[in-house]
Amino acid sequence: MSSLVKKYLMALTGFVLVGFVCGHMLGNLQMFLHPDWINEYAYKLQHLPYGLLWVVRLVLLITVIVHVVVAVQLVLENRRARGGENYAAKAKLQATFASKTMRYTGLVLLAFIIFHILHFTVQSVHPEFKELHTEITGTGTLWHVYDHLKPMGHTNQHDVYAMVGIGFSPHFWYVPAFYIFSMALLCMHLTHGVASMFQSLGLRNSVWTPRLRKLALVIGWVVFLGFSSLPVAGLLQAFPHQDHIQAQYEHTFDGGAAHSDAAAHNH
């Protein structure tokens, strides 16, 4: 594969991932509405027709794998090209910090993605998340999920709202802290990556360079603020329906703790 084909692959997969990230962020912001919004949204995603959920997951998985594998290849090739002897004197002319640390921010983000999937998708970090269920009341009727579930009597669904609220609560403060840190790195990664992808695809000239830099900066910061607002709200216990999260926490986590305490006493 030629050097430029690798650059095209990085740009194209990066483009898909930026699109996913923006959509994911918009979905997440429903946490600041009534719990029904995100719970119905989650139900809708989990029950997409024709196995579309797995199609999307597979496409994203392949995209991430290509992005990472090609990046590793590029880094190894670049290291080889630089040669054995390093400069004794080093000077930086104008390169941004973000542009020179893409490989490191990318590596942390890969670790973040794996943890994030184990945390909220597989739910193996806190298996209690699987037990969180709540009644959908039809407040967030964007997709009429309630109208669909009501006649079947299936309105008791997975409580994503409480899961996110508990996952980001001060009880597990290190988790939201890691999320905020990772989103700051994502912001850095994007401020270089979004502008860079246009260059790699040959869609940039001196007129568009400053515009694309600004676009990258805006996307980076919007993504950072949009995503970080959730772990920040979780840490500050500032979600609009915090009482619901608290009730679910006491029901699922404290209740579980009381059980194990009792078991310990019986011994």
């Binding site: 670049n78 080889r80 090209a81 104008q94 390169a95 941004t96 542009s99």
Partner: peptide
Amino acid sequence: MDAEGFGNCTNIGE
């Protein structure tokens, strides 16, 4: 260029 073993551009502009 590739055969000569040069590296790949990361668009940093140095």
